[in-house]
Design a protein around this nucleic acid. Structure first.
Length: 324
DNA sequence: AAGGCACCCAACCGCAGCCGA
DNA sequence: CTCGGCTGCGGTTGGGTGCCT
């Protein structure tokens, strides 16, 4: 049995609001308030609108002190920081930006800001209006993010992740949008994951073993538990320590969350990783919103935890699906 | 000049959670 | 404790607009 509609759709006006309707709604609310009941408000205000439509119009457009127009750099920074850390919880993000609505911020993010961010992360892609995806099977070259030199897809057949001993490594995967791969950026290292059939896999057929671990190109091994760790972390909410395991896929930033660890140093292969010691730390100057602030936000909003957005997780360990 | 395409953003939809009866 | 009404939220849609070919 379906849910009862919130209103009779045949008897309410839909679509864009006229200036007269705006005026009626604004006048009514300014005189009487919302009365805590949006359902009955349109009738009282003499509007042939659904209560939800009235509420949305008021909140997003008519209420006082709404700010329209360009977002400032500071607002950009706050949005980016919060999105990376808490995901697409627009109402929380909007609460940090006086005068901005969640709808505004959501639209701004989806249409402009994530592209802007992508452009900053991938300056060479500035000219691309839209990433071509999926790529043609013959395109076996991609542009290395750091060196900007063409690299063969052969190199992508093995993957590398931070050691299982150091689950809190800053871990910044980015979607290299012009080819069929995901890059995991963990400076000075970059790990590249091929995408097959719209599927992002930890490891490829050649590098995975039956126990679920993967042999890594840099002499490390990613264990099944670690993949599980990454797989399960999405329901965990904040760990209280480092939450800067950020990634971007197809322009959508997500954040890996894991258990806290103490300070570590990685000296394997002479490569220095940057591990966190409980301090808020980011790799991208855009993303330096205070962790304590965000934690406070989360706790004050019910601490629902959060999920990696835009990835549809497969039940199978270490495998992620996402749509295009 | 015109058609196609991509972008932008206001508005809609449906679900989840809250709260009172 | 349960149920139903309502609100709030996030994802999605679609019309308007501007750019490109």
């Amino acid at each position: 049995m379906g849910r009862a509609p919130c209103c009779d759709k045949t008897s309410v006006k839909r679509g864009p609001w006229s200036p007269e309707e705006d005026s009626k709604l604004k006048d009514y609310i300014e005189k009487h308030g919302t009365g805590g009941n949006w359902i009955s408000l349109p009738h009282k205000a003499g509007l042939k609108r659904c209560g939800k439509s009235c509420r949305l119009r008021w909140l997003n457009y008519l209420r006082p002190n709404i700010k329209h127009g360009d977002f400032s750099d500071e607002e950009d920074r706050i949005i980016c920081s919060l999105y990376v850390n808490i995901g697409s919880r627009w109402s929380i993000i909007a609460a940090q930006l006086p005068g901005r609505t969640d709808n505004d911020i959501k639209n701004y993010w989806n249409t402009k800001l994530k592209k802007k961010l992508m452009a900053m992360q991938f300056p060479t892609l500035h000219h691309q209006r839209k990433p071509s995806f999926p790529p043609s099977p013959s395109s076996h070259q991609f542009l290395d993010y750091f060196t900007h030199t063409p690299t063969s897809l052969i190199d992508l057949q093995t993957i590398s992740l931070p050691s299982n001993n150091y689950p809190n490594t800053s871990f910044n995967p980015f979607y290299q949008n012009q080819e069929s791969m995901i890059s995991v950026v963990n400076p000075p290292m970059q790990y590249n994951y091929p995408i097959k059939d719209n599927m992002f896999m930890f490891g490829s057929e050649g590098s995975s073993s039956s126990d679920g671990s993967c042999t890594l190109s840099h002499g490390k091994e990613i264990k099944q538990e670690e993949i599980v760790y990454h797989h399960n972390m999405n329901s965990g909410g904040f760990d209280g320590y480092n939450n800067n395991n950020n990634f971007m896929i197809n322009g959508n930033i997500g954040s890996f969350v894991g258990e806290s660890v103490n300070q570590h140093e990685e000296k394997s292969s002479g490569v220095g990783y940057s591990y966190n010691n409980g301090q808020s730390q980011t790799l991208n100057p855009l993303l330096d919103y205070g962790l304590e602030d965000i934690k406070q936000l989360i706790s004050s909003s019910g601490n629902k935890g959060f999920h990696v957005d835009d990835i549809h997780k497969n039940e199978e360990i270490g495998m992620y699906y996402f749509d295009y």
